[in-house]
Design a protein around this nucleic acid. Structure first.
Length: 867
RNA sequence: GCCGGGAUGGCGAAAUCGGUAGACGCAGCGGAUUCAAAAUCCGCCGGUGGUGACACUGUGAGGGUUCGAGUCCCUCUCCCGGCACCA
C-alpha cells in the first residue's frame, strides 16, 4: 500500500478494475427492483465544461448509492449530436459536421472515463447515427398518419442578406449575427407536432409527479396556461368592412365586456391586410411590424404602438360601433390574433388608450361591498375583480355571476360561449438546416405530402455537402431532393428541412433500453427499464425539453410502443457553475473579459475585495461578480486540467461539497485544495489503520465512556448523512463524512476497543464516500481488507445501540431568549423538566422573582419560561 | 414585459415540522514542528462594548403574526433562469 495518496495511480487502477469486471454492464432482472438513473446527455461541443462534470457527478453518486442499496441500476450515456455548432464549425474551419462531431465524441468519451462514472457504455447512442434517427423518421410517419403531425405556416427570422433562417440566438439587436442585416419576419410552411392535443393531460398529470421540484411543475403549468374564459364574437359593421362576418376574440374577463371601447388585431390578421390595401399609413405600420425577430422577450418589451384600420365592428351586447386597431402587442400565434380592449380594467389597454385618445369606460367597482364606488379611470386601470357598474342589467353582479350571465346572453344570441384556451402552442419542428434528422416526407404534385414508406427508411443525411452559412444546403443538393413519389412513382421532391434537435432528445431515454435493436424503435426491454427513476439536468430545461419529452412519451404510448405515460419519475434540476468575471469596457461600451488567472485582487483588512488589476499591465479591471462559466466571459475552469492536477475524486468531492445540487456553484481554487486535503487525510487514516487494526475484533458491549461517545458521534453523523442522501443534499453528506473523520481522529487507538470502533467507523466512512469519491473508496476498502468490491457493499445504517444516551441537554429560554442550558435524564418527564428549569440558576437570575405565566416544553430541544 | 427562483460571517454554506443562527469547509490570524519553506498538527475567528464572566445586536430592506421567526404573512429592492429556432 502506498503511504501517500496518489490519485493518478489509484484512479487508473480502479477504472481498470471496473472495466475488466464489466462492473456497470446491466441486464434486465425482474427479481430485483430496478433503478434507471439518467443524466441529460451532452451536446458534443468539443470538451466538457464544469456544468457537465457537476451533472454527471450527481447522477453517478445516485446510481452508485442505489446499487449499494440493492437496486439493479442502469446508468447510460450518449450524445445529443445534431445541432448548429457543428454547422458553424464547418463554416469556420472547413471541416465536415459529421467528422467534427464524431471526433468530439471520441475525445469527450475519454474525459468521462477519466472521471470514473459508472456508465454502461454498451448502450451508448449518438443521435446523428442513421441507426438512431431512422426510428425517429419511422415515428414521424406514424404520427403524421395519426394527424399528430401536420403542416401550416409559421413565422421565422429571415436574414435577407444571407438568405437564410436564423435561430433566435443568431439575432442580435434585430440584426443577423453574421451579415449584420436587419432581420425580418417571414412566413414559411412547416411541420408541427400537435402537442396541444395533450394539453389537458400534460397539465393534469403534473399532480402525479410528487418527486419533481414544485418550481418546475409550476413553470410547466403556467407555460401550458389553461384559462377558462369566453369567446366573444364582434359582428362586422358591414358598411365599413364590406362583408358579413364576425371578429372572434377570447377573454378571461368577460365581466368587463361592457367596458370594451375598441378591438385590436395582430398585424398579420386578415382584417389588417384588408384595411391596409388602401391605407398607406396602415400598410407602412404593418411593414414596420415585420421588422425584427420573432423572440417573445423582444416583442413583449417593444413600445406599444398601433394604427386605426378605419374598420368597425359591433358590440355584441349593446350594439355600439367599435373601432378596429392594429396593435403590435397582439400576436397572431396566440388565440384568435385579436383582443377586445377594456382600458379601464387592463394596464396595457389603459396605456394604449391613453396614448391614442381612445375612450375609457369603467364597469367594475373597486369596492367589495359598495359597488357605487368607482375608480377614477384617468388615474390607472383597475385590473382586480369587483362588482359591475355602468353595465345595465349586470350592475351589482360579482365577477363569476357577471361572466356566467354575459356568457349565457352571448350564447343565446349566437355571439359567443364559454370555452377553454391554452397558452401552449403546437410545436414547430421544421428547421432549414443541414445537420439534423431529415424529415421523411416527399412532395408530389399529384399526391401532395407523402410520408416515406418504412422500407425506404432511413432517409440518410448526405455527408458530402458544402456548408457556407447561406441558404439551406440540402435544398441545393439535387441528388438529395430529387426522388420519385412513393405513391404514384412520378418525379417528386424530397423535403429538405430537418427536425428540431429537441425531437431526438425527446425519446433517447427509451432507446438506451434497446439501443441494439435493428427491428424496432424500442422493444420489451424498454418497458422493464422505463420510466427513468431519476433524471438529472440543468434547470434551464425546466420547460421545453421536459415538456416535449412528456408529450413524446404519450405519443409513443398511443402508438403502442411503451406502456408508460410519464418519462421521468423523479427530477433533480442542478444549478449552474459560476466563477468571478473580470472585464474592461472600451469606448463603445464593448466588454473585454479577462481570465481570473490574469487578474490580481487587493482586499481590505477584512479580506473583502477592493479592486482588481490586470497582472500584465497593472491597470484596473472591473470586478463583474459571479457569472456563468463560459468562453465569452473567459472565466471557465477546464475540468481536464483539474483532473490532471488533483484527480477525479477531488473534482467530484469539491463539486458535491461546495453547494447543494440545485443551487448555483461558485468556483474556488482554494476550495478544490481543501477537498484534496480531506482526501489526503482519509488516505493517511486508512494507511495507519491498515497497519494496526484488526477487523476481526468485535466491539465490546461495554465501551470506555470516551470511546462510546466517539462511536455515538459517528453513528449520529451517519444517521444525518443517510437522511441528507435521501433528500439529495450531498453537500451535508460530505460534511457528515468530514465530521466522522474528525471523530475517528480523536480515538485513542492504543486500546483494542478503540481500534475496533475505528475500523467500524472507517468502513462506514468509506461506504458513505464511495458514491462521491469512488476511486479512493475502492482502493482503501481493498487495502484495508473490508471485504469484496465496495460497489456492492451494503449501505451503512446507524445502530440504535450506538446511539443511546442517558442524559440530554435542553436549551433554556426565558421569554424566548436563550439564557442557559439544562442537563437532564433522557427519560425525564415534562414536570421533571419544568421543575429543573425553574430551579436552575439562569431561571432564578432572569425571572427576577416574577412568577412563570407559562412554560413551553419542546421534547428533546428546549424549555421556554414565559414571565 | 410575462413566468419561476434566490439573497444568512471576509467566502461557499448548515439549521429536518416555527425551537441553541453560522455545523462542515475555505480564507485569515496566533502557535508548534522545520536551518528555512512546503506539508502537517493545535488554538482563535459575525458585529459592538468589556481584561473577563458577560451584555447588547445580527439571516437583503420595511412592517405583521407568535411564548419563540433565517423559516409563516404583507410591501419593497437587487441578482439569476426561461420565454417556444442555443442545447
Amino acid at each position: 500500500m502506498q503511504d501517500k495518496y496518489q490519485p493518478a495511480t489509484i484512479e487508473a487502477a480502479a477504472q481498470q478494475h471496473w472495466e475488466h469486471t464489466a462492473a456497470f454492464r446491466v441486464t434486465e432482472d425482474p427479481k430485483r427492483p430496478k433503478y434507471y438513473c439518467l443524466s441529460m446527455f451532452p451536446y458534443p461541443s468539443g470538451k466538457f465544461h464544469m456544468g457537465h462534470v457537476r451533472n454527471y457527478t450527481i447522477g453517478d453518486a445516485l446510481a452508485r448509492y442505489h446499487r449499494m442499496k440493492g437496486f439493479n441500476v442502469l446508468q447510460p450515456m450518449g450524445w445529443d449530436a445534431f445541432g448548429m455548432p457543428a454547422e458553424n464549425a464547418a463554416i469556420q474551419h472547413d471541416v465536415p459536421p459529421a467528422a467534427w462531431t464524431y471526433a468530439n465524441i471520441d475525445y469527450m468519451r475519454g474525459q468521462l472515463k477519466r472521471l470514473g462514472f459508472a456508465f454502461d457504455w454498451s448502450r451508448e447512442i449518438a443521435t446523428c447515427a442513421p441507426s438512431y434517427y431512422r426510428w425517429e423518421q419511422w415515428l414521424f410517419t406514424r404520427l403524421f398518419e395519426k394527424g399528430l403531425i401536420y403542416k401550416k405556416l409559421g413565422t421565422v427570422n429571415w436574414d435577407p442578406v444571407d438568405e437564410t433562417v436564423l435561430a433566435n440566438e443568431q439575432v442580435i439587436d434585430g440584426r443577423g449575427w453574421r451579415s449584420d442585416a436587419l432581420v425580418e419576419k417571414r412566413e414559411i410552411p412547416m411541420y408541427y407536432m400537435r402537442i396541444t392535443a395533450y394539453a389537458d393531460e400534460l397539465l393534469a398529470a403534473l399532480d402525479e409527479l410528487p418527486d419533481w421540484p414544485e418550481q418546475v411543475k409550476l413553470m410547466q403549468k403556467n407555460w401550458i396556461g389553461r384559462s377558462e374564459g369566453v369567446e366573444v364574437h364582434f359582428p362586422y359593421d358591414e358598411q365599413s368592412i364590406g362583408k358579413a362576418g364576425v371578429l372572434k376574440v377570447f377573454t378571461t374577463r368577460a365581466d368587463t365586456l361592457l367596458g370594451a371601447t375598441y378591438v385590436a388585431v395582430a398585424a398579420e390578421h386578415p382584417l389588417a391586410t384588408q384595411a391596409a390595401a388602401n391605407n398607406p399609413t396602415l400598410a407602412a405600420f404593418i411593414e414596420e411590424c415585420k421588422k425584427g425577430g420573432v423572440a417573445e422577450a423582444d416583442l413583449a418589451t417593444l413600445e406599444k404602438k398601433g394604427v386605426d384600420t378605419g374598420l368597425r365592428v359591433v358590440h355584441p351586447l349593446n350594439g355600439e360601433s367599435l373601432p378596429v386597431w392594429v396593435a403590435n402587442y397582439v400576436l397572431m400565434g396566440y388565440g384568435e390574433g385579436a383582443v377586445m380592449a377594456v382600458p379601464a380594467h387592463d394596464e396595457r389597454d389603459f396605456a394604449f388608450a391613453g396614448k391614442y385618445g381612445l375612450p375609457v369606460k369603467t364597469v367594475v367597482s373597486s369596492a367589495h361591498d359598495a359597488y357605487q364606488e368607482v375608480v377614477a379611470p384617468w388615474l390607472d386601470a383597475y385590473a382586480e375583480h369587483g362588482r359591475l357598474v355602468n353595465s345595465g342589467k349586470y350592475d351589482g353582479l360579482d365577477f363569476q355571476a357577471a361572466v356566467d350571465a354575459i356568457a349565457a346572453d352571448l350564447d343565446a344570441r349566437g355571439l359567443g360561449q364559454k370555452r377553454v384556451q391554452f397558452r401552449l402552442r403546437d410545436w414547430g419542428i421544421s428547421r432549414q438546416r443541414y445537420w439534423g434528422c431529415p424529415i421523411p416526407m416527399v412532395h408530389c404534385d399529384d399526391c401532395g405530402d407523402v410520408p416515406v414508406p418504412d422500407a425506404q427508411l432511413p432517409v440518410v443525411l448526405p455527408e458530402d455537402v458544402t456548408i457556407t452559412g447561406r441558404g439551406s444546403p440540402l435544398a441545393r443538393l439535387p441528388s438529395f431532393y430529387e426522388c420519385s413519389c412513393p405513391k404514384c412513382g412520378k418525379p417528386a421532391r424530397r423535403e429538405t428541412d430537418t427536425m428540431d434537435t429537441f425531437v431526438e432528445s425527446s425519446w433517447y431515454f427509451l432507446r438506451y433500453a434497446s439501443n441494439d435493436s435493428q427491428t424496432a424503435m424500442v422493444d420489451a426491454r424498454a418497458n422493464y427499464w422505463a420510466p427513468v427513476d431519476q433524471y438529472i439536468g440543468g434547470i434551464e430545461h425546466a420547460i421545453l425539453h421536459l415538456l416535449y419529452s412528456r408529450f413524446f412519451t404519450r405519443a409513443m404510448r398511443d402508438c403502442g410502443l411503451v406502456s408508460i405515460s410519464e418519462p421521468f419519475t423523479r427530477l433533480l434540476t442542478q444549478g449552474m457553475v459560476v466563477a468571478n468575471g473580470y472585464y474592461r469596457e472600451d469606448d463603445s461600451g464593448k466588454k473585454q473579459w479577462f481570465s481570473p488567472a490574469e487578474v490580481s485582487i487587493t482586499t481590505d483588512e477584512r479580506n473583502r475585495p477592493l479592486s482588481a488589476t490586470l497582472t500584465a499591465d497593472g491597470a484596473p479591471v472591473t470586478i463583474g461578480g459571479m457569472v456563468k462559466m463560459s468562453k465569452s466571459k473567459n472565466n471557465g475552469v477546464d475540468p481536464q486540467a483539474l483532473i490532471e492536477q488533483y484527480g477525479a475524486d477531488t473534482a467530484r468531492l469539491f463539486i458535491m461539497f461546495t453547494a447543494p445540487p440545485e443551487q448555483q456553484l461558485e468556483w474556488s481554487d482554494s476550495g478544490v485544495e481543501g477537498a484534496s486535503r480531506f482526501l489526503r487525510r482519509v488516505w493517511n487514516f486508512g494507511y495507519a489503520l491498515a497497519s494496526e487494526a484488526s477487523l476481526q475484533v468485535a466491539i465490546p458491549a461495554q465501551l470506555p465512556a470516551a470511546v462510546a461517545d466517539v462511536r455515538r458521534e459517528i453513528h449520529t453523523h451517519l444517521k444525518q448523512a443517510n437522511y441528507d442522501f435521501g433528500k439529495h443534499q450531498f453537500n451535508t453528506v460530505v460534511s457528515a463524512a468530514m465530521k466522522i473523520l474528525n471523530a475517528l481522529e480523536k480515538l485513542p487507538r492504543s486500546e483494542t476497543a478503540a481500534q475496533a470502533v475505528a475500523a467500524e467507523g472507517f468502513s462506514i466512512l468509506l461506504r458513505l464516500l464511495s458514491p462521491i469519491t469512488p476511486h479512493i473508496a475502492h482502493a482503501l476498502w481493498q487495502e484495508g481488507g473490508f471485504g469484496a468490491d465496495i460497489l456492492d457493499a451494503p449501505w451503512p445504517e446507524p445502530l440504535d445501540a450506538a446511539l443511546t444516551q442517558d442524559e440530554i441537554e435542553l436549551m433554556l429560554q426565558i421569554n424566548g431568549k436563550l439564557r442557559g442550558s439544562l442537563r437532564i435524564a433522557a427519560t425525564a418527564s415534562r414536570s421533571d423538566i419544568e421543575h429543573a428549569a425553574l430551579a436552575s440558576g439562569s431561571a432564578q437570575k432572569f425571572m427576577e422573582g416574577q412568577p412563570a405565566k407559562k412554560i413551553v416544553v419542546v421534547p428533546g430541544r428546549l424549555v421556554n419560561i414565559v414571565v
